[in-house]
Design a protein around this nucleic acid. Structure first.
Length: 663
DNA sequence: GTGCTTCCTG
DNA sequence: CAGGAAGCAC
């Protein structure tokens, strides 16, 4: 796993109670040194087998965890106690018993058989605990036992800190949670990698179980000798030491190699048993081994399924189809998605796989965007911000809750086709005028494919004449947007462009208008925006989107200016004042291409001045080495924020957005 | 708490 | 360009 994922997960876990911190999933407050509860279960099981055995519990743990223990580790009190508490938190309580140097007293106080029976019962209980733990769904912490994750977490300071923000308080708890958590960025490849890692981890656990099981067997055989001699085994620093080196001195070493091999195959206890290796074990142990084998096999299968389900929803849906189980999405979930979509502007481009022609399965038709972003992401996002409105029907056809699946498909086909041929895509090579001259073939093809739309739609399509951007932008394009009343199309007939009524969603025209406004103002207030987008029904969502647009504009702007400032520095420019942005300069062309793609708007000279000043400020700051400061841009931002100028009144005109698309 | 902003990511 | 996280100011 890359470090970034872990870091991001850590960050998620470390909110300072602000905003989304409330929705945090389990964020263990115990520190990063602690293995997960699952690891503790294993440790409990394994450490319990050590009662009275005088064996070092460290051998029960993968090397990376055992590293946390000092080499002079001593059971109970002593310098190693702290390390022990950290490495084996869940065994802290039983540790005094398990590690007691005078544990032999137990053997002395009780008959051997009774002690053995207690051990077996305890082991059974622990194995059940393991199985329960492994049966849990692959929640983040469920696989946090990954030794590498634990170790990586210990080295939190080495995590790449790409963030330029203030150093955060070291995050703790989640560890490698991101390895399994169904993050939005999950891809099949990533999911497969996670699955592979988890299988490796399971295999490792099996290996450990096997090792310890046979160690117990060996101990059973040799317990008498060990107890008689009362010799303390040397405490190895690593489990491998105890297993590979120390075992060479034990009496049972000769049996281990074949047994391990068999266990790695299928928990190999049965095979070992058949060979008589376990002949000396009590019946309970054999029963335990059988139960363990069975449960581990089942759990492994469950884990595979659950992981696939988590990281590969499509695969899961196929599995579920095959199994005739419940549909992937509950109706409520669908409504959630639909309502959430309200706040999404109709500019979003569909992923290629969501093209109308590729909508194969019913699920895909109903939820075309689900493949791009998980449903959970939508639901969580919108519900957490409280902007979800289930009753209001948005204008741009995103309210699909009341439509039939066929209607969903039709409306989405419209939206998808609309988005695909949006003029404002960054990779679009078509100028508005090119679109205006005639109907681009793709558009015609698209509209031709949408044949099953309602009569309302057909009527509107009929009146939506040249498929010009203005028509595309008009709410008339998406008739079902309102509430499907029959008088609506008639109204549209009279006023095809519907300039007079408020739109509930931002359109490409609004986006272009905002971009042009950026030439005048870089930091518009929400109040100002409301006065210049009079044809928009403002809501918190709309406002946020507009503000976000300008934030994105600024981001691009500053990145470009900084790039050219650094370039000028490299080119040997000495005097910052010589840096002037003209209409011929590369910087201007880059900016103009972004905000005024069709070059159909004359950029105000004031913007050139602002850009020049910005360039000079960046140049001076970089030259002075201020960019070493994480917040070195803030002073520049402050300067530029004061250079906003008035926006021409023409931008307030109703229909301005539409007209801009014609220009 | 909310709004606005930057930073980061996809 | 959108979404989210986080910081900051009110």
């Amino acid at each position: 796993m890359d470090g970034r994922t872990g870091f991001e997960q850590d960050r998620d876990c470390a909110t300072s109670g602000h905003g989304q911190g409330l929705k945090l999933e389990p964020c263990f407050q115990n520190d990063s040194l602690l293995p997960s509860p699952n690891a503790s279960l294993i440790s409990q099981l394994l450490s319990h087998t050590m009662v009275g055995r005088n064996l070092d519990p460290t051998i029960l743990f993968p090397s990376s965890q055992a590293v946390a223990l000092p080499h002079d580790y001593k059971c109970g009190a002593g310098p190693g106690e702290e390390a022990q508490a950290l490495a084996f938190p869940r065994t802290r309580a039983p540790a005094p018993v398990a590690c007691a140097r005078d544990g032999d007293q137990l053997s002395n106080q009780h008959p051997r058989e009774q002690l053995c029976d207690q051990h077996l019962r305890a082991k059974r209980a622990r194995v059940e605990s393991i199985i329960q733990g492994m049966s849990l769904p692959p929640t983040p912490q469920a696989f946090d036992t990954n030794p590498e994750a634990a170790f990586r977490h210990e080295r939190g300071g080495e995590m790449p800190q790409k963030s330029k923000r203030k150093p955060r308080v070291p995050q703790q708890g989640m560890g490698a949670a991101g390895q399994v958590a169904p993050t939005g960025g999950s891809s099949p490849a990533k999911g497969c990698r996670q699955l592979k890692e988890q299988l490796c981890f399971i295999e490792q656990q099996l290996r450990w179980l096997q090792e310890k099981f046979y160690q117990v067997c060996d101990s059973e055989d040799t317990a008498q000798t060990q107890e008689d001699s009362e010799k303390v085994q040397p405490l190895p620093g690593k489990p491998e030491d105890s297993l590979n080196k120390d075992s060479a001195t034990t009496t049972s070493n000769s049996h281990k190699a074949p047994c391990r091999r068999s266990v790695l195959e299928v928990c190999g206890l049965e095979e070992a048993e058949d060979r008589g290796d376990m002949g000396g074990l009590p019946l309970a142990v054999r029963v335990l081994s059988q139960a363990l084998k069975h449960e581990l096999a089942v759990v492994t299968s469950q884990v595979v399924d659950s992981v696939l389900k988590t990281v590969w929803p499509k695969a899961d849906s196929h599995i579920q189809k095959e199994q005739h189980s419940l549909p992937m999405l509950e109706p409520d979930a669908r409504r959630e998605y639909s309502a959430g979509g309200k706040c999404r502007k109709p500019l979003a481009k569909p992923s290629p796989t969501n093209a109308p022609g590729s909508l194969g399965s019913p699920q895909a038709e109903v939820l075309p965007a689900a493949s791009g972003k998980s449903l959970g992401a939508y639901a969580g996002s919108f519900s957490s911000k409280g902007v979800r409105k289930s009753t209001r029907v948005p204008s741009m056809g995103y309210s699909l809750g009341s439509a039939t699946p066929v209607q969903h498909s039709q409306l989405l086909s419209q939206l998808l086709g609309y988005g695909q041929h949006s003029l404002w895509g960054s990779d679009s090579h078509e100028s508005p005028s090119a679109l205006e001259r005639g109907c681009p073939e793709p558009l015609n093809l698209h509209w031709g494919t949408v044949k099953l739309r309602s009569s309302i739609v057909r009527q509107q399509q009929h009146h939506a004449l040249p498929l010009s951007p203005a028509n595309m932008e008009s709410p008339a394009l998406l008739p079902a947007g309102r509430d499907g009343h029959s008088e609506l199309p008639a109204a549209k007939d009279r006023a095809p462009f519907a300039l007079t009524h408020m739109q509930e969603a931002l359109t490409p025209g609004h986006l272009k208008k905002a971009k042009l406004m950026f030439f005048f103002t870089r930091y518009p207030s929400s109040t100002l925006l409301k006065t210049y987008f009079l044809d928009v029904q403002f809501s918190r969502c709309i406002t946020s989107q507009l503000i976000k647009w300008f934030s994105n504009f600024r981001e691009f702007y500053y990145i470009q200016v900084e790039k050219f400032a650094r370039q000028a520095l490299l080119e040997g420019v000495v005097d910052a004042c010589t840096l002037q942005v003209s209409r011929d300069s590369e910087l201007f062309r880059a900016l103009n291409m972004h905000y005024n793609k069709g070059n159909d708007f004359e950029v105000p000279g004031r913007f050139l001045e602002v850009a020049s000043l910005t360039l000079q400020e960046f140049f001076s700051a970089v030259r002075a080495g201020k960019d070493a400061d994480p917040s070195w841009k803030k002073p520049i931002y402050k300067i530029i924020s004061k250079l906003d100028s008035d926006i021409p009144e023409g931008f307030k005109a109703a229909g301005c957005s539409q007209e801009l698309l014609h220009s």
